[in-house]
Amino acid sequence: MRQKKLFIAALVFLAVITGSIIYAADHIDAPAVTSQSTDITDLYVFRGQDAGNLVFVANTQGLLSPGATSAASFDENTLIEFNIDNNNDKIEDLAIQCKYDAASNAMLVYGPYPVSEPGTMSKIQGQTTARVAVTAYGDAKPKIGTGTYGIKVFAGPRDDPFFFDLNRYKMILAGTAPGFNNPGTDAFAGTNVLSTVVEVPKFLLGNTNSLNVWVETKKKM
């Protein structure tokens, strides 16, 4: 298989520590990725329903209205890459790479594999370990693909899971509100994202109780 060079287009950082999660969110406030397939909104990592698995979620192309969601699609020239540091040196040791194949309308998963080139440049590593047809907007039965070692994958539009009361936040900054309401008003209600979800057995991630994880979207050169 020909290895393809890619360059970094956007990135969000997340640190996973034993027993807890620190997460980051970013909705189109970087001019270089606004309205692009490379725009990352959120990264989540959490224990699966099977306690022996970890679930990695990368959401992209946020703030999609219901009307725009049916026409939204993954980009075959954009690589979604989960980077995993399992020895706390802040350098990726493993990568899970997800690449859309337009011909089959499927998301292909590579890895987790050892990283041959740490940093902003990447090569697609090895062979596919899982694949799944992209679930269409409004499909009542989400498609779940399975692959090597029990890896599972989903790809398709989802309701944006991130909750933030943006208007109240602005009022707090302006000094016109003392704090957030409980419950607040979700500024992202009614908007969608394109979600890529990969569930991986923990034994594939190294013998460690602590991981640093970040996600990058990378464009083909």
Rank of each mutant, 00 (worst) to 15 (best):
G67N: 12
G67E: 13
T69F: 08
S70C: 03
S70M: 03
A71C: 04
A72C: 05
A72S: 11
A72P: 02
S73L: 01
F74W: 00
F74G: 01
D75V: 02
N77F: 06
T78M: 02
T78P: 01
L79M: 14
L79N: 04
L79H: 05
I80A: 11
I80M: 12
E81H: 11
E81Y: 04
F82L: 09
N83P: 08
N83T: 04
N83H: 07
I84M: 03
I84D: 02
D85G: 05
N87W: 12
N87Y: 11
N88S: 15
N88H: 06
D89Q: 12
D89K: 12
D89F: 09
K90F: 14
K90H: 13
I91W: 03
E92A: 15
E92T: 09
D93T: 10
L94M: 03
A95Q: 13
A95P: 10
Q97W: 11
C98R: 05
C98H: 08
K99W: 06
K99C: 08
Y100N: 00
A102F: 03
A103D: 00
S104M: 02
S104Q: 09
S104K: 00
A106I: 00
M107A: 11
M107D: 08
M107F: 00
M107G: 01
V109M: 00
V109I: 08
V109Y: 00
Y110H: 11
Y110G: 06
P112Y: 09
P112F: 10
Y113T: 11
Y113A: 09
Y113H: 13
V115Y: 09
V115H: 05
V115T: 09
V115C: 05
V115K: 05
S116I: 13
S116C: 03
P118M: 14
G119D: 12
G119W: 13
T120D: 15
K123M: 06
K123Y: 15
K123H: 07
I124T: 13
I124N: 04
I124Y: 06
Q125M: 13
G126H: 05
G126M: 03
Q127H: 08
Q127D: 14
Q127K: 05
A130N: 10
A130I: 10
V132R: 01
A133D: 07
A133S: 15
V134R: 02
V134H: 02
T135Y: 00
T135V: 04
T135W: 01
A136Q: 14
Y137W: 14
D139C: 02
D139T: 11
A140Y: 01
K141R: 10
K141A: 14
K141M: 11
P142F: 02
P142R: 04
K143G: 10
T146P: 04
G147D: 06
T148H: 09
Y149I: 03
G150L: 07
I151K: 01
I151P: 06
I151W: 02
I151H: 07
I151C: 07
